[in-house]
Design a protein around this nucleic acid. Structure first.
Lengths: 170, 170
DNA sequence: TATTGTTATACTCTATAACTATA
DNA sequence: TATAGTTATAGAGTATAACAATA
């Protein structure tokens, strides 16, 4: 799926579909396309907006080179210091293998540290370093700027409605 | 970003945030995590739902081994026969390089064919083959089943509201 | 035996660049 | 010179499997 906005010739799912053979010939080559079935798929539109939002996030956070997944991990470590990799990974649905590599990178930047957990020596307790705490302050500021752009993109009321809808689903 | 559902200790964006140091010690290790800032990010929730929806799509279409992007391309070719690769790619925001590979795969399955465009010999006109048309009928049926599951997951009214919101944004 | 974290592999998707053949 | 399509490469993200240390 992808990201283009369907043209105006929308057809709601459930309405009759023109057969392929009955397509009118294109008057010009710049004709808008028929998105057909796609207009009835929630996933298509979700994906479209999600890509646009992440794209802005990545661009806005580019000065600090922080990606959405890294941001979510830093926020969770900051708000829940001392928790294990498995706890953070499960909460964010990040594979432990992938999280291990990501934390290695965040450790290389000296934003986080792993300490031996006293109760279970298999697991690592995660903390922000002082450097990481300072970086996160700047990151939060850029992330807030991103979210302000989302208000402009989506509209304040629509964003709040969307937030409520998405939060409460499932 | 990722996909877990935040626990109940939500904090709206704009409300004061507990500092990391003031976290209560964990009574047990199964404690719910504080998602903090993430609760105010539309992108976080969008991503969460989008991943869940695509995951169901992929599982539902697995018998025919069709992924979301392939589905969207097949639908667009079916509804707009004879259009060029660049037209389809721009409409769906798929890189021409990636679309070329995807079409190669769809051609290998004998679902689509490329014919020389009479007016511009650089471009290829795309069509479903007869095999592709038959396959798409089955694909549509599974995709419809997927969308029914989405109604169950999201709720009928919420899905319609979401569809309208997402469709009209931008 | 099961779990935590690590390393490795493979596949999808995204982003570029370089190339060809046409225009 | 620009555009349509192709090929190649590299980076994220995802999904597995195998392994060591520990429970």
């Amino acid at each position: 799926m992808a990201i283009a906005k369907p043209a105006n010739n929308q057809r709601r799912s459930g309405e009759p579909r023109r057969s392929a053979g009955s397509q009118l010939p294109d008057a010009g080559q710049g004709q808008a396309l028929d998105f057909d079935e796609l207009n009835g798929h929630i996933g298509y539109f979700l994906r479209r907006l999600q890509v646009a939002v992440f794209s802005n996030f990545i661009r806005t956070l580019a000065p600090l080179d922080v990606r959405p997944a890294q941001y979510s991990v830093l926020i969770l470590i900051s708000a829940n210091p001392g928790r294990s990799q498995s706890a953070i990974g499960q909460a964010l649905n990040i594979e432990r293998a992938r999280l291990a590599r990501m934390l290695h990178e965040l450790e290389r930047r000296e934003w986080i540290e792993r300490r031996a957990a006293p109760d279970d020596r298999r697991s690592h307790s995660l903390f922000l370093t002082e450097t990481g705490t300072k970086a996160l302050a700047r990151i939060r500021s850029l992330a807030a700027r991103h979210e302000e752009r989302m208000v402009e993109l989506i509209g304040r009321d629509r964003r709040l409605l969307l937030l409520d809808l998405l939060r409460e689903f499932g």
